[in-house]
């Protein structure tokens, strides 16, 4: 009986170690992924700072030179998308309340808002041809999942388009202010050319909304069915 008790104990120890290893491995991988997210985020911050600095330098010279470079802007758009996708995955892996994820999300949201303001200013002052979509979404909403997939596809086909992915549930004053400026109550809602589009819009519908930004390459007769729950409102931003 003595050796039997010992066996039960040894097995308990071994099982605990294996169990612990699973937790340990998972946390190693998670923190690795979080630091990948942080890297992308830092890259975004640098890219924005770069645009900002150039804009500040050229401010005096009244838009003689182009402020934005196509290559750089495409890179930034891609990074913004990439981070949005990765953040969403990490939320499902850890939990939406995970501190690291929340922190990155807040910071990322602020970076985007900052870039958005900068782009608006460059557009206004220098009339540069930049196309931006403000996209408000939230967790746990099927239409948001669909809209995110469509916007992902849109950016991969039109890389010069800039989509700002804003989670409306991120509790940061800047986001809340944005929500009240554009009168957003629930996701998915997009702001395109100062117009608010609530509900899910298909790829083809978006092409119709902004044909100048999303030229249809092939001549095809696409019939656009009006989707329920969509509302279109114009709001003047001041």
């Amino acid at each position: 009986m003595q050796s039997e008790t010992k066996r039960y104990f040894i097995v308990f120890i071994i099982t605990s170690i294996i169990f612990g290893l699973a937790f340990w491995a998972s946390s190693i991988f998670s923190s690795n992924k979080i630091s990948q997210l942080q890297e992308i985020q830092e890259q975004i911050a640098i890219d924005i700072l770069s645009t900002e600095t150039r804009y500040a330098l050229l401010e005096q010279t009244s838009c003689v030179h182009s402020v934005t470079s196509l290559e750089e802007e495409q890179g930034l758009s891609r990074e913004l998308n990439d981070l949005a996708r990765r953040l969403k995955f990490m939320e499902s892996q850890l939990s939406p309340e995970d501190e690291d994820v929340l922190f990155i999300k807040k910071y990322y949201s602020l970076l985007q808002i900052k870039d958005y303001l900068l782009m608006e200013e460059i557009k206004d002052r220098c009339g540069e041809n930049l196309f931006t979509i403000l996209y408000f979404h939230q967790g746990d909403c099927d239409d948001c999942q669909k809209q995110s997939l469509v916007l992902d596809e849109l950016v991969s086909q039109y890389p010069e388009t800039r989509v700002y992915w804003l989670d409306k549930d991120v509790n940061t004053p800047a986001i809340q202010t944005m929500l009240s400026i554009f009168g957003i109550s629930q996701g998915p809602t997009m702001v395109i050319n100062d117009k608010t589009y609530e509900g899910f819009y298909t790829f083809e519908q978006l092409q119709e909304i902004a044909p100048e930004a999303f030229p249809v390459e092939k001549e095809e007769d696409t019939i656009v069915k009006p989707q329920t729950g969509q509302t279109e409102t114009t709001k003047q931003i001041n």
Binding site: S26, K33, L94
Partner: peptide
């Protein structure tokens, strides 16, 4: 959202999207 063609799997091996939960 994207139609039937999008369901054809594309094998992009990005380790980031491998499930590493406990």
């Amino acid at each position: 959202a994207l139609g039937a063609e999008s369901l054809i799997p594309t094998f992009s091996l990005d380790f980031f999207f491998v499930d590493t939960t406990v």
